[in-house]
């Protein structure tokens, strides 16, 4: 019976996850010409990837986006979750405010990015305000289509992935533990630092896994918010695909998968995912 019940899920994942990823692994060793792919076993795709300096600068840029996004989403996510879990007193309000944070997650990412154009653009609200107040003489070009805009969009889109698991961790903290810390003479800061934060580690770890995998493999945010000026691993990969250099793109994908999995395995050591649900 259980096997019949898991069959649809398992079959779907075998066909659309395992097989495609396996195929990428295989194709990464193939050879190619301008027009077609040649089944083979060559290391040239990997060699070219590792010998190119561009690869390293692209990875560096992607890691930079990931690190910055992680820092901001963690700080904001922790603060928001802390407010919801410890300062909002009734469950009804907690659920309401939590839903307010969650709803944008169910709307389109692309449109949420487009929404920054009238704010950050050359004639956007911020530039108009800056010009109007006389703080600057010319519109600030770095607001939109820049690395700044990319990180801003990531934080805007993905902070929720931090709020939810951290909030979940916080709601499980026995309030008596907090009381005990206060009774023992710890102030709010020390209580957060030595009681709340350690108990939230699993939540932060789960949030971090989301942030790392989403940002490391992002294509559309970098492409849109940098106006095509910044690079990311996925953007490079898609460029190779557009040139029909599938084996090169596949080798790139395998390396990306390796890097992401290393980071995730590191984070998984902090947390037992199934226990957290």
């Amino acid at each position: 019976m259980p096997y019949l019940q898991i069959l649809p899920l398992t079959l779907t994942l075998l066909v659309f996850l395992v097989a495609p990823v396996g195929l990428i692994g295989v194709v990464s060793f193939w050879d190619y010409t301008e027009f077609n792919l040649i089944p083979d076993f060559v290391w040239t795709n990997y060699r070219e990837l590792f010998e190119s300096r561009v690869t390293y600068s692209i990875y560096l840029s992607t890691l930079k986006f990931t690190a910055l996004t992680w820092v901001f989403t963690t700080l904001i996510g922790f603060t928001v979750a802390y407010f919801l879990a410890f300062h909002v007193r009734t469950l009804r309000w907690q659920i309401t405010l939590f839903l307010i944070c969650t709803i944008p997650f169910w709307t389109s990412n692309i449109i949420r990015m487009i929404a920054w154009i009238p704010v950050l653009g050359r004639h956007g609200l911020i530039n108009e305000a800056l010009l109007g107040s006389g703080l600057v003489d010319t519109p600030q070009e770095w607001l939109l289509y820049s690395d700044f805009a990319v990180v801003l969009a990531f934080v805007h889109l993905y902070t929720l992935f931090m709020v939810v698991p951290i909030f979940n961790s916080m709601m499980r903290i026995d309030r008596a533990v907090i009381e005990a810390a206060y009774d023992a003479g710890a102030g709010p800061w020390r209580t957060i630092r030595h009681v709340v934060l350690p108990l939230c580690k699993p939540g932060i770890a789960i949030g971090s896994i989301f942030i790392v995998t989403l940002v490391m493999s992002d294509y559309v945010t970098v492409q849109m918010m940098s106006g095509g000026q910044s690079a990311s691993v996925a953007v490079a990969m898609n460029n190779k695909r557009a040139l029909l250099q599938y084996p090169a793109a596949a080798a790139d994908a395998v390396v990306l998968l390796g890097v992401v999995l290393l980071m995730v395995v590191g984070l998984m050591r902090i947390v037992n995912v199934r226990k957290e649900l």
């Binding site: 898991i6 659309f16 495609p20 194709v27 995998t213 691993v233 898609n238 599938y246 793109a249």
Partner: peptide, 24 residues
């Protein structure tokens, strides 16, 4: 195994899924 397969589906970079399925 099925559980980890499901978690993997969440954390495998999307770009691999889309590239892989297209290629397949």
């Amino acid at each position: 195994i099925v559980f980890y397969l499901t978690v993997a589906s969440l954390i495998v970079p999307s770009i691999l899924i889309t590239l892989g399925i297209g290629l397949m």
